[in-house]
Every structure is written in C-alpha cells, then in structure tokens.
Design a protein around this nucleic acid. Sequence first.
DNA 1: TTGAAAGCGCTAACAT
DNA 2: ATGTTAGCGCTTTCAA
Lengths: 336, 336
Amino acid sequence: MPSSKISEVARRAGVSPSTVSYVLSGNRSISEATRARVEQAIRELNYAPHAGARSLRAGKTDVIALADPLYDWSSGAVDKPHILGHMPYVYGVVDAARRHGWNVVLVTGLGSAALEKVVGSKMVDGVVLLEVRANDERLKLVERLATPAVAMGMPLEPTAVPFVDFDFEGAGRLCVEHLVGLGHRHIGLLASPPGTFEQGLAYTHWIWHSVQSTLNKAGLPFHGLPVETSRKGAQVALDTLFEEEPAMSAVIVNGEGMIDLLMQELQQRGKEVPTDLSVVVIGWSELTKHIVPPLTHVNVPALEMASAAIELLARGGPAKLLPASLVAGGTVKPNW
Amino acid sequence: MPSSKISEVARRAGVSPSTVSYVLSGNRSISEATRARVEQAIRELNYAPHAGARSLRAGKTDVIALADPLYDWSSGAVDKPHILGHMPYVYGVVDAARRHGWNVVLVTGLGSAALEKVVGSKMVDGVVLLEVRANDERLKLVERLATPAVAMGMPLEPTAVPFVDFDFEGAGRLCVEHLVGLGHRHIGLLASPPGTFEQGLAYTHWIWHSVQSTLNKAGLPFHGLPVETSRKGAQVALDTLFEEEPAMSAVIVNGEGMIDLLMQELQQRGKEVPTDLSVVVIGWSELTKHIVPPLTHVNVPALEMASAAIELLARGGPAKLLPASLVAGGTVKPNW
DNA sequence: TTGAAAGCGCTAACAT
DNA sequence: ATGTTAGCGCTTTCAA
C-alpha cells in the first residue's frame, strides 16, 4: 500500500510500463479498454508516481519555491514575523500554484543561500519572490541561475526578472485626489516603518513617491513620515505631523496594521474621525472591517496578486500591475 | 553554471564519481589531498547534487510537508486566512526544519487529498500537521500510509500519531487560579469562535475543559461562551456574560486577536480594565504588547512548539506538552 | 584509500 | 495502439 511502482501497475493491467505512463500523461492515444484497465489497476494499487524518479527523467518537478524572508521590517527581527496581512500572499501563492498542479516549498530567510541550494539541486521548476527589496540578493541569484522566476513587487531598479505588483503608485494618487477633490489642503502620509525604507521595499517607495508627486502637482505641500507599527509610533507620527502643519486635515495611512493604533491614539487626544481628521487607508482586511465608521480605503488584492504571479510563472508574459481603486467609507469628510 | 553533474566534478578532480559522493556524504574515509581537490572542484563548478536523483537512489528527500489547512475557523472561509498569530507556527516549522537540513513544502486545504498526493509520490520524508481537529482526515491518512508524522496539537481522541502541544489545560488552570487567588468569584471565559468548537480544534477544548473543571473544583460557577473574533462578537459576549452574572468581575480570553476588540467594547461601555473588569489572556504577541496596562497573560510559545515538533519528527520520542506560565501584568486587580 | 558498475522508477524515442 | 529499451544522476555494494 505505501509504495507501488509503475511496473506493478503494468503487470496488473496486463500492459507495459510505458502504456501506464502514457495513460497518466495523456501523451499518446490509448484504447478505451486499455485505459480503463490501467486506471483500475492504479486505483487498486493506490499508485502514485515517484516524484524523484519523475523529476530525474523528465527534468521537472512540479514544485516551485516561494522565497519569503518572513522578516519583521519594523522590529528588525527575523524571528517575529507578525507582519499583518502577509499571510494572504503565502496562502494565495500556494493555492494558485495548486491550481496549476504545483506544490510549493517555502524558503525563508533574508539571504539567498537557502534559495540557491533549492534551485541548484533542481528541486523546483521556478521561484516566486515575496517582499522584494532594493539590492535583493535573490533577484541576482535567479538571474544568474536563469531560473524561471517572478517577483511579487516591482523592484526599484529594473531587472530582467518579470514582476507582478499592485499599482501602489495609483493607490497613492487616488488617495490624494480623493482628499484634494474634497477640499483638503494639508494632507499627511503615515508611511510604513523606517525599516521598510532602509531595505528599499517596493511598495514603500511607490506610495511615498506617488503621494509626494501628486501633492506637488496640485501645488500642495507634502508631509510624509515613516511610522513604526506601535502605539509609540502612532504618537510620534501625530505629534510630528501636527507640529509640521497644525492645519492638517487628512492623513493617508499605509497599512491596515496601523489603523487600530492610530484610531486609539486619536481617541486618546479627543480627536474624532472624520470630524477632526479624515483618514484614508491603503490596505484592508478582516482586521479592520469591524471599524466604525467603515474605512475609506484602497484594497490591496493579495490573492489576485498571487494568482497573477503564478500565471506569469506558468505562461510567461509581461510585467503586470493590478489597478487600484478607492472605496469611499465614512472616514473622510469634505473640507471646504 | 546552472547544472553540473557528479561525473563532471569527478573528472575535474581526477577521481571517480563515487569518491565525490563519499566526500559529500562523509560515509567513507578520504585522504586529505583527495578531499581538498574534490571540494575545490565542487566549488568551481558550483555543484549541487540533483535532488530527484538523490531521492530516487537514497529513498529520502530531506523535505517534509507542513499540512496547514489555512482555514478561517471564524468566518468559515478558506480564502481569508487572517488567523492572528498563526504565522509564527509556519515560520517556526520552516526554520526549525532548516536547522535539520530539511526543506518544507506547504500543503494547504482542509482535506487530505493534496497531502496524500505529496506523501504517496514520496516527495517528503515526514509530515507536520497543524490545526489538528477531531476526526481529522489527515491523521487517518498518515496512520494508513505509515508516514513519519507529528501533530501540533493534542488530538481529542488518542491516535498513534505522536504530538507536541502547549499545555492549554495548564494555561486555563493557571488563569483560574490566579483570579481565584485574588478573590474573584465570578469568572467568565471568552473562548475561541464557534467554528473552532464545531471542528473540534484541540486547544479550544482543552482550555474550555480546564477552566470549567478548575472553577468547579473551587466550588465556583462556570460561565463560558465561544466568541466570534469581531466587534459584534465582543458585544454579544459581554452582553451574554453580564446577563448570566451581573457580578462578573473577571474574564479569561482565549486568543490575542480578541483583545483589541474587547478593550474597545469595554471602553465604549465606560468600563475600565482592571477597575471594573479584570482580564487575563491566553495568547500574547506583537499585536498586544503595546496595550496599556500590559496584559496579564499566558504566553503561547509557537516557536518552541514548532521546534519541539521538528525535534520529535527527527529523533522520535514521546508526546510532549510545553508547560504554561502566567505573567502578571496590569489587567487584573484583587477583588476582596 | 579508491574505482567500477548496478540499479533506484520513470519517460520518451524508437520500434512494431 | 502498444511494447522495448536506454538512460536521467546518484549512492552503494562489491572489488581491488
């Protein structure tokens, strides 16, 4: 029961091993009768082809690597992976990969050593890179080894590695336009933690720059700062922002993990949302759906990104940016 | 560069393939000179053994499966994996596995079909089961296939599969004892969501039963209820609890994901912690560390559980329960 | 201390 | 429509 080989299946079905192989792969036309007998034998023996043998012979494994640092960019620890909203990416990749008949080996760590071993030993047919950052060793690795690969996140410098990303630039722009369109003139950006800037994480930069340039084009000042995802971070951010510009009437917040902290801190200070401050969030999840009033937000479609990445890996094609759209909730009020 | 085979390494080092193999495995004594030449050749060619070939010949893969349903037990969705604090288990397993030289293939889904394929095709040397529940198909599968396996979570019914778990019974007991020791007589349990009960998730039950029986032994009434992880859930829970027992002075909360919601709801009702209600939490994470006053809590050591699971898988041994301890914070006040 | 050679289970080219 | 066979890259007896 535990193991049986193709020759046993063949014997039981009264055919040759190659016939069994062809039934399995569909690479040859087989008579209905033969196919039926083979399939029955497979069922009876609970046969499953040996993955190693198959990979040795066929040169592919039907396994891909998901290279995910699982690094906590805000605390600088690699052993405290509390990044909110990260799991959907992992889940999404695993799930989309399965739809293509691929299994996923999860390769953690900041560097590329573990990934190099996995790729070098021909364990995988391709690689998906999560949390791509500037100067990412892993990008160089997949280029050097000429491994099929897709980056989730548009790298800061152009590379030969195709990527899939959410249009964070568009997201930032939409937020600014929404607020400006409602009369806001003093808009702050609570960006992701300093660590994400130091590391050059893709989304961090695209949001920052698009908010900045959209405000500039509107002739408005830019007030942005990286924020630690902590109560302290929220306090410092609000202090700094209102010191810079006491007339601040709206903030754009990057990351749903910041929202509860921000809301609590505002409450503490007796500021109401949206009466005293309008809030738009880039990011949306189960964690924030309960909030009253519902957040005006731009959803970041992690599952779709994952599907697109797998699609790109499977069929190839150009880089892909998923479009952003803003959902008006109850956390922005006109400011005329 | 991308690929090279053992025979090329052998040729370059002027030895036979078997010698290279023995240098790699250490299964034979090799002269210093030979070893040096082989190792240099390996480096120069950037050689890595073909995983498939190795697995075919050696009968092992140095890969394990992490079977994680990634199911949202509170919303009943398999595509919204927002379970807080789940990631450290995944990360912990991958990390501990790497320390043993193992890679990890992540197998999602509630059923056992995907897992059966992975195990049946000899892709993995063993399996770690996460989120074990009553009547778990996956337990039966690994028993049937006689695959080396470890469950993370003590199954409700005894099985032949060894397990590692945190002592949730002890955790529940400690919480009750702490509160009773400080004079509390009316203690509520805000347990995990109804879905976790329906599914018979291990921790769910052990906490419930230990809180219940410890209270009983102390001659005190038990007030417990499953709670959805949402604002609504928090509201319903508090309504129900205080209706059942208006003199309720303390609650034990299962899961750090509930804390923010609970605190906000209490604030809404003008109740202070711990003045009006004492709170003890089973669960502790980056998400709750910012809370003031700091939570009185029992930490659930996900990373240690993961290490222990991998250790069990590697070396075998009896089931293992990690001991619980309570950290006194500022959310419990004496009730004399 | 090292080499030669068989064979793990499968797929696909070459038969018929 | 089906069978025969070579060989993928490695480990490990068996031999020297």
